[in-house]
Measured scan of single mutants.
Amino acid sequence: MTTFKLIINGKTLKGEITIEAVDAAEKEKIFKQYANDNGIDGEWTYDDATKTFTVTE
């Protein structure tokens, strides 16, 4: 398992979430669903070196 981080830079929601997953593709799906469930629609980036997804509205 690898630890992945999501950084949220939303208009109404900001924060960080850290979760373990098998791979980045699995985690991306979970993070995007979390963002969608919380009304966050923005630009996504991924840094493989730090295993960090960022979504910015």
Rank of each mutant, 00 (worst) to 15 (best):
E20D: 09
I40T: 03
T12V: 11
T52E: 02
G39V: 06
I8A: 00
E43M: 09
I7F: 05
Y46A: 00
D37Y: 07
A35Q: 03
I30S: 02
F53Q: 01
N9K: 07
E43P: 04
I30M: 06
K11I: 14
D23R: 04
L6P: 03
I19S: 07
A25G: 12
T56D: 03
I40D: 02
Y46F: 04
G15L: 15
W44G: 00
Q33E: 08
T54A: 02
K29G: 06
F4S: 05
K29R: 10
L6H: 01
E43I: 13
K51M: 07
K5W: 14
K27D: 02
D47H: 03
E26F: 09
W44T: 01
I30T: 02
K32G: 04
G42H: 03
A24S: 12
V22P: 12
D23N: 08
K32E: 08
G42P: 02
L6M: 04
A25P: 10
F31M: 11
I17D: 00
E57M: 14
K32Q: 10
I7N: 02
I17Y: 11
K29F: 10
G15A: 15
A25E: 09
T18W: 14
T3D: 07
T12G: 12
K27F: 15
K11N: 09
K5G: 01
D23F: 07
L13V: 12
T18F: 12
L13P: 03
I19W: 14
I19P: 01
T18G: 03
E26L: 09
A35D: 00
K11L: 12
T52G: 01
L13T: 07
A24T: 13
E16F: 14
T12R: 08
E16A: 09
F31N: 02
T12S: 08
A21H: 09
T50L: 04
G42F: 12
K32S: 05
K27V: 15
T12P: 04
Y34L: 13
V22K: 10
D47S: 02
T50F: 02
T2H: 10
K32P: 02
T56N: 07
V22R: 08
D37T: 10
G10N: 04
K11S: 07
K27M: 15
G39W: 12
T12I: 11
Y34R: 00
I17E: 00
Y34F: 14
T56Q: 03
I17R: 03
K32H: 07
A49Y: 06
I8P: 00
V55A: 02
A35G: 02
T2L: 12
E43C: 14
Q33A: 10
F53K: 01
V22E: 10
I40M: 05
Y46K: 01
F4W: 04
D48W: 06
E28H: 08
N36W: 14
T3Y: 11
K32R: 12
K32V: 09
D47Y: 02
K51T: 02
I17C: 15
G15Q: 14
K11V: 12
L13G: 10
I40R: 01
M1D: 05
I40H: 02
F4T: 06
T56F: 08
N36E: 13
Y34G: 01
F31D: 01
G15H: 13
T50K: 03
K14W: 14
I19D: 01
A24H: 12
G10E: 02
I30F: 12
I17M: 04
Y46Q: 00
A24K: 10
E16V: 13
N9S: 08
I7W: 03
A21Q: 04
E20L: 14
K14F: 13
K14S: 07
T56R: 04
E16D: 04
T54P: 00
A35H: 02
K51W: 11
K51F: 11
A24D: 15
K32A: 09
A21Y: 07
I30G: 02
L6V: 14
I19R: 02
A49N: 08
Y46M: 01
A21D: 03
K14T: 10
G10R: 02
I40Q: 01
T12N: 09
K5P: 07
T18Q: 09
K51C: 12
E20N: 10
A49T: 09
E28Q: 05
E43N: 07
W44Y: 03
G42R: 03
G39R: 04
F53Y: 07
I7H: 02
D48L: 05
V22L: 09
A24Q: 12
G10S: 10
K14D: 08
N9R: 08
L6C: 15
A25R: 07
I30P: 01
L13K: 06
G39Q: 07
T2M: 12
D48F: 07
A21C: 15
K29V: 08
G42N: 00
K29Q: 10
F4E: 06
E20G: 06
K29H: 09
T56H: 07
Y34D: 00
G15E: 11
T56L: 07
L6D: 03
K11R: 11
I7Q: 02
W44F: 05
E16G: 08
A49Q: 10
E20S: 12
Y46C: 04
I19Y: 04
E26Q: 08
T56V: 09
A21K: 03
E26N: 12
V55Q: 05
I7A: 01
D41Y: 14
Y46H: 00
G42E: 02
I8M: 04
G42Q: 04
T50V: 01
T3L: 11
N9F: 12
N38A: 09
A24R: 09
E26S: 10
I7G: 00
Q33S: 08
G10P: 01
K5M: 07
T18R: 09
M1S: 08
T54N: 06
I30K: 04
D37C: 14
M1F: 10
N9W: 13
T45A: 06
A21S: 07
K5Y: 15
D41S: 11
A25Q: 09
K11E: 06
E28N: 05
K14C: 15
F53I: 04
D37A: 11
I7C: 13
K5F: 14
T3K: 13
D37Q: 08
T56W: 13
K14R: 08
A49P: 03
I30L: 09
E16Q: 09
K14Y: 13
K5C: 13
